[in-house]
Design a protein around this nucleic acid. Structure first.
Lengths: 342, 342
DNA sequence: GTGAAAGCGCTAACAG
DNA sequence: CTGTTAGCGCTTTCAC
């Protein structure tokens, strides 16, 4: 590969002049500039970003850490982020924490080692130590999806309380009183918020919550399937289920099918999160949809903004909460007789 | 960040000794080694990969270029690749070509600039110039999914001819003779192969193919929807459709639903590729499933193998073709009367 | 305006 | 076995 030295030789100038010229500093004569530019073209020169990184301490790489790469929600976000990044001449490194806080930290450490320009993190930990360790990095970090208290960084996510409140209310309107909630990962912000929205709305409607109907699905399809199986084979089974996210809902749907039940005739189902191609899933789910595009767009924008700022820390931490949209499907109906009378 | 110099100072040795020690060359006394190791711990030393890359000309980064990041097929592959890579202490950069050959090349150029250790590429071009430009890189490249003739590189993909042959045969067995094929991206290997499997099987069964029933869906959901709409509103509409991939099939399904038709009563549908959570899509699709895990595993393994080899080019190009599996669903039935008599 | 030189952090000859 | 030295390719003062 051609180096700056080759260009200098061909143009008959020193390497520093080449650098000055190619970086458009305006400190070089127009004609020398032209000569250098021509020479660069001729030898096929393209700057070595590794050398630039070593010198500057920053690369044109940005990192993205998510819990589960294969979750389409993150796939979409990744896609948007990558498009935005490439436009700004950055490349993106993705890595997966598998919902493990230790892994969050370990990857962050590696990314920091690579001198990435910044990272978009969907954090899976909490507590003082976690917060401190994350805060110890000097690179710009934008937090996504899960909010962690105490971190002084930009955050972009959805109003999860509102999302499950909307859905719970929807179910209540249909006449359900015995509603189950298959929750997300214990301790995770989104999961807790969604649960809160559920409890709050039930309380506001004066409905009691049977705590045995609130179970952990951990945002995991298989576990949610098992939990749904348990719930649905109880003699006093719920008449409706609020699933914490798309993966959970699919597990539930699977359980419903396997038990030979009908949704919504036998059981109503709603969930938070968007399901890919939800319109071909039968029945079409009633859900609270997050605006993936908006989340991705704001996250990329804010990160790149900090990256290109000469004083990133001067920008106060921002927060962008996206309102979910209620999407009515065909997965809800009035409670079936035999279940309501329990 | 602590550098090798800090460690040297603390341990009271020269920086080269530190380097030698930490790289486990076995050329350092046990006690000096211990002292250095201890010092490294104390100052919190961690090698700067950027400097290492500059020196060696290779980073511990691997690239992955796919057509569409949000396609769950690639999401899954990416996940597997990332897991394997991280295990081998590598990070992965993903980028999207959006099915544009020029972009393939442009990204490859950027990755090469970053001195990535290797790349996994799902290529979208063909022809001499494309092949030559790809071949000009010295880094290990493993090709995925789409096979490009003339490139001397490892290739991992499915037997696409077999896949569509299996499905076509399945439809023929059901008694279909008027079968439509919504094909993939023009010129792309997988698309051509799938089309070939279709034509070959029809010919082998002595069935004529109505060429107007073979249309381009370009692996695009919206376009496939439109094409399916056209096909299904023809007076002489087909009794079955073979969709080139999952995205295509979902578009078709959408069209079927929107037209108020029933699958499989009114129209049979099959597709190649796996659909995420296909078991909750109604009807369960009959499809040729590719073993994503196997593809991802072999690709990662081969790439990392070349990367860690001191003579990567000495390894002859390999090819691994995965046999698709026929997964019977409920999307096929005997042709309806009114259509067959056309 | 242009060039010489120092140095980012690390590795690898080559001496000693 | 350990230290000295010379870069990898680039940016950036600082002289001229």
């Amino acid at each position: 590969m051609a180096t700056i030295r080759d260009v200098a030789k061909l143009a008959g100038v020193s390497i520093s002049t080449v650098s000055l010229a190619l970086n458009e500093t305006g400190k070089v004569n127009e004609d020398t500039y032209q000569r250098i530019w021509q020479a660069a073209r001729d030898v096929g020169y393209v700057a070595n970003p590794v050398a630039q990184s070593l010198k500057s301490g920053r690369s044109r790489l940005i990192g993205m850490i998510v819990g589960d790469i294969s979750n389409p929600f993150f796939g979409k976000i990744l896609q948007e982020v990558e498009r935005y990044a490439i436009e700004k001449n950055h490349l993106v490194i993705v890595s997966e924490s598998r919902a493990d806080p230790e892994r969050d930290l370990a990857i962050l450490e590696q990314l920091s080692g690579q001198r990435v320009a910044g990272v978009i993190l969907s954090p899976h930990g909490r507590g003082r130590e976690y917060v401190e360790r994350i805060s110890s990095y000097r690179m710009p970090i934008v937090m996504l999806d899960h909010k962690v208290e105490g971190i002084d960084a930009d955050f972009i996510g959805s109003d999860n309380v509102l999302a499950s409140a909307m859905l719970t209310e929807h179910l209540i309107r249909w006449g359900h009183t015995r509603i189950a909630h298959i929750a997300g990962i214990t301790g995770l912000w989104t999961a807790e918020q969604r649960m809160k929205g559920f409890y709050d709305t039930m309380a506001a409607s004066g409905l009691p919550v049977d705590d045995s109907l609130v179970v952990r699905g951990e945002y995991d399809g298989d576990l949610s399937y098992t939990q749904a199986m348990r719930l649905l084979t109880r003699p006093d089974r719920p008449t409706a289920i609020l699933a914490a996210n798309n993966i959970t809902a699919l597990g539930v749907l699977q359980a419903i099918n396997d038990l030979g039940l009908k949704c919504p005739a036998d059981i109503s189902l709603t969930c938070i999160d968007d399901v890919p191609w939800s319109n071909v899933i039968s029945p079409r789910l009633t859900m609270a949809v997050q605006s993936i595009d908006e989340i991705a767009r704001v996250a990329s924008k804010w990160l790149l903004e900090r990256i290109s700022s000469r004083t990133p820390e001067a920008i106060a931490a921002r927060e962008h909460i996206v309102d979910p949209r209620l999407l009515i499907g065909q997965s809800c109906a009035a409670p079936a007789q035999f279940s309501t009378k329990v």
